[in-house]
Design a protein around this nucleic acid. Sequence first.
DNA 1: TCAATAATTTAGAATGATTTTAAAAAAGAA
DNA 2: TTCTTTTTTAAAATCATTCTAAATTATTGA
Lengths: 138, 138
Amino acid sequence: MKTIRPFTHAVDRLNAAGLRPTRQRLALARLLFEDGNRHITAEQLHREATEGGVKVSLATVYNTLNQFTEVGLLREVAVEAGRAYFDTNATAHHHFFNDDTGELLDIPGDSVVLSSLPDVPENMVIGAIDVVVHIRNK
Amino acid sequence: MKTIRPFTHAVDRLNAAGLRPTRQRLALARLLFEDGNRHITAEQLHREATEGGVKVSLATVYNTLNQFTEVGLLREVAVEAGRAYFDTNATAHHHFFNDDTGELLDIPGDSVVLSSLPDVPENMVIGAIDVVVHIRNK
DNA sequence: TCAATAATTTAGAATGATTTTAAAAAAGAA
DNA sequence: TTCTTTTTTAAAATCATTCTAAATTATTGA
């Protein structure tokens, strides 16, 4: 029996996105996508790559995260001024943010629902809607 | 006829918050609170003060915004990595963010309602809930 | 295969926002 | 006043991120 696993391989994702599968991009894509959903900063990903023996510069990590975001492989989440988080789940969903630890967490499924939407100012359209639920230790 | 206007005077706000009403804090409090709700960055407030003839350093503007936030006179809103916005409406409410202009706007009244809340992870409590509706020109 | 061309990576400099430092100035208490 | 504490400040330091220009790598076409 064979399970359908779209984009199992990093190289497929890159090809589908029209990005050349370079050594660095492949290695970063593997770290990002091969192990379920992740929430990560550029520094964190760079450290992880370096510790895993992948030689890649911090500038390339930034470039790559931004490129992946542009083509829709990642979503950038704003939770704190000063730090950018990237989420490997690019579909619409919301987040817990642990104010104590700085950890970002998906809010599962539809457990947050916006029951009404505001009137949007004249000549404007709604893009993304971000809900961040700040949590801390009891 | 006399309208009840709590905290009309900056000095009252500072006293109530236990902050010494220094020249700088008073001037900044007036700019922030005497003219309806505002959404402002440190740089913006510093420029406004300077242009208005108030001599205050950028470091003091940062200090003051952080102190006001600590005592609950302001609320910090995270909409974009890299820039901190401060909102003079410290009560629970939500925001439009204009991705084109970087302008932050209150969403009026109860026009956004969260109809259900997610289960919070073990031993954690919910703090603030931030809803940011990104908008852009049609 | 071998240039020629184009895209990518990189180290390091530059930028922008914010914080820290240590000293001077201002405020409150005695 | 004078003493003590708090606040302000300029300047340096820090942190995240982007830019630059050169070196490397990938792709294309003969």
